[in-house]
Simulated scan of single mutants.
Amino acid sequence: MAQAKNEGEGSRTAAKAYNDKTTAFAQSGRVEEQAEKAKQSLANPAEAADLKAAEKAAKAHAKGEDPAVDTSIRR
């Protein structure tokens, strides 16, 4: 089995795969459908609480919010 090439800081291969899949999803015509599903999830109090708890847990592992992110537009 061949060993994966170390690409150093950041992975161009992973970045390309992410960009390709993100572009494919954006062009798939499913964006509105998925946005509506997310909106419905947030409208359900139990599901919204679960999602907020998961977000809080994920942020607990983060080094901090990206200063470029505009948090004033959040819910």
Rank of each mutant, 00 (worst) to 15 (best):
A2T: 07
R74P: 01
S28Q: 03
T23H: 06
A68I: 11
F25K: 02
R74E: 15
A24M: 01
A2W: 05
S28L: 01
R12S: 14
A2I: 04
G64D: 08
L51I: 15
K37C: 01
E55G: 10
N44G: 00
K5V: 11
N19L: 07
A38D: 07
A57N: 11
Q27L: 09
T13K: 04
A46Q: 14
E7I: 03
A43I: 02
E33Y: 07
A62N: 13
D70T: 10
K39D: 01
G64V: 15
K39V: 01
P45D: 12
A54G: 07
N6S: 10
K37R: 07
A57E: 11
A49P: 00
A58K: 14
A49E: 09
G64Y: 14
A53I: 06
V69W: 09
S41D: 15
P67F: 05
G8A: 04
A2F: 08
G64P: 06
R75M: 15
E32N: 06
A60L: 13
A53V: 05
R30Q: 07
D70M: 10
I73C: 13
K39T: 00
A14L: 12
A53E: 10
Y18P: 00
E33C: 04
H61C: 10
E47R: 03
R75F: 14
A35C: 06
E9N: 12
A57T: 10
T13S: 08
M1S: 13
A58Q: 14
E33A: 11
T23Y: 04
K59T: 11
G8Y: 02
Q40S: 02
A4S: 13
K21P: 00
R12H: 12
Q40W: 03
E36K: 05
D50E: 12
P67M: 10
P67L: 10
D70V: 06
H61K: 15
A62R: 11
A35N: 07
Q40A: 08
P67Q: 06
K37G: 01
A4Y: 13
M1Y: 13
D70W: 07
V31F: 05
H61M: 12
S72Q: 02
F25P: 00
R75V: 09
N19C: 05
E65V: 14
E55M: 11
